[in-house]
Simulated scan of single mutants.
Amino acid sequence: MIHLITGGVRSGKSRYAQDMALSQSAHPVYVATAKVWDNDFAQRIEKHKNDRGPAWINYEEEMYVSNLPLDGHTVVIDCVTLWLTNFYTENEYDPEKTLAAMKQEVQLLHQKAGTFFIVSNEIGMGIHADTVVGRKFADVQGWINQHIAHIADTVTLMVSGIPVVIKKS
């Protein structure tokens, strides 16, 4: 089962995903896809780790999430945007290669038994990127969000900390 949770920056996506996972499992899995880019980001990651607490089984995987032992678990994957960024840089900012690699990972996850809460960002609702690389990334982000939403059982849009279910199978 896949639940896509999307929305803007600081809309409450991660907290909502974590709360949902904890309501279904005493020991859910948290998959962090972030790469540490600078000191500020390292501090954000540490805060996220400390906020989760001891109930969680934690994995850090920047790209190949499907290789993790996730079968049969309740899993939060946080987040698609950082995960996609890792593929985007690895594929030298090629939108087609990036999208193909991400779709393959999502399909492999979709084949696993378990409940997946996948957190993503609606970056296309924000400021328009001022570089070609940024605009292409926004396009790829939108396309992968559409792909995940299509196969997801539920899609929830977070608005100011309020979950708005926009798809329920």
Rank of each mutant, 00 (worst) to 15 (best):
I162D: 01
G72H: 11
N86I: 08
H48C: 06
I123M: 04
R52A: 12
V165S: 07
L22E: 15
I162H: 06
E90A: 15
A149C: 02
T89S: 14
K112P: 03
G12D: 02
T98P: 04
E61Q: 15
Q107F: 09
I144F: 06
T89M: 13
K136Y: 02
I77L: 10
E92H: 15
K168C: 06
I166L: 10
D94N: 15
V159F: 00
N67L: 12
V132I: 10
I57K: 13
L4S: 00
A152M: 05
G53V: 09
M1W: 01
Q107Y: 10
A34Q: 06
A55S: 15
E92W: 03
T98V: 06
N121K: 07
V119G: 03
D71L: 02
M63F: 02
M125E: 01
E105K: 12
V164S: 06
R135I: 04
W83N: 13
H150W: 03
T156D: 10
I166K: 11
A101R: 10
D139M: 07
R10N: 10
L22G: 11
S169M: 06
I148E: 01
A100H: 12
Q111F: 03
Q111C: 07
D40Q: 11
K167P: 05
T33S: 04
E62N: 14
Q141I: 10
Y64A: 15
A17D: 02
E122I: 01
F137Y: 11
K168T: 09
T131I: 03
I151T: 09
M1K: 09
R135A: 09
H27S: 13
V65L: 08
T74N: 04
D38G: 07
I77E: 02
G53E: 10
D51P: 01
H48K: 07
T98L: 02
I118V: 11
N91D: 09
N50P: 07
S169W: 00
K47C: 06
Q141V: 12
V165I: 12
M20H: 05
T89N: 12
G161I: 03
S14I: 00
L109N: 08
I162F: 08
A138I: 00
V65R: 07
V140F: 08
S160W: 08
R52W: 08
